[in-house]
């Protein structure tokens, strides 16, 4: 019995839900969270992100100087971004399948910021309605 914690982009919530249902997951919980990832030190990668962000045309909604500082604050790693945290309970043998489904649904061209999946052991689970425990409580 395993608990899968997946942190994904807000916009990918629907795609992740669809992918999970298609994989045959019985149930899951989703929470709004904010988070940040590890520091990106690759300057080429950062420069690419900066160009993409500047090309979005933020100048229309803010002054030119503001855009610079905004983009810099996006890329220096200290800012928290909204993400969706999925919690899924699964049988041991289903874990690779679910991870595969979440990964394919969530990969984007942006790369950085696509999210992370953690797999945690679960000691026990009990279904409240029937009282059945252990593996039977998942599905």
């Amino acid at each position: 019995m395993k608990e899968i914690m997946a942190i994904v982009r807000m916009k990918k919530t629907g795609a992740t839900k669809k992918a999970l249902v298609a994989t045959g997951v019985a149930g899951f919980t989703a929470v709004k969270v904010i988070g940040r990832g590890k520091l990106v030190t690759d300057t080429d990668e950062l420069e690419k992100c900066r160009e993409k962000l500047l090309a979005l045309g933020l100048d229309e909604v803010s002054d030119a100087g503001d855009t610079e500082t905004l983009v810099t604050s996006f890329l220096d790693g200290s800012r928290f971004f909204p993400r969706r945290l999925f919690t899924i309970l699964a049988h041991d043998e289903d874990v690779p399948r679910i991870i595969e489904a979440i990964t394919t649904a969530n990969r984007t061209d942006y790369g950085i910021g696509d999210g992370t999946i953690f797999v945690l052991p679960v000691a026990d689970a009990v279904r409240v309605r029937t009282g059945e425990a252990g593996e039977a409580a998942i599905w």
């Binding site: 590890k38 991870i99 990964t103 969530n106 990969r107 942006y110 696509d114 797999v119 945690l120 052991p121």
Partner: peptide, 17 residues
């Protein structure tokens, strides 16, 4: 503090933090 067995980075499609 709880144990984590595996971690995957989605953008790299690979195991590891």
């Amino acid at each position: 503090v709880s144990p984590v067995e595996e971690a995957y980075t989605i953008s790299k499609n690979a195991l590891g933090l």
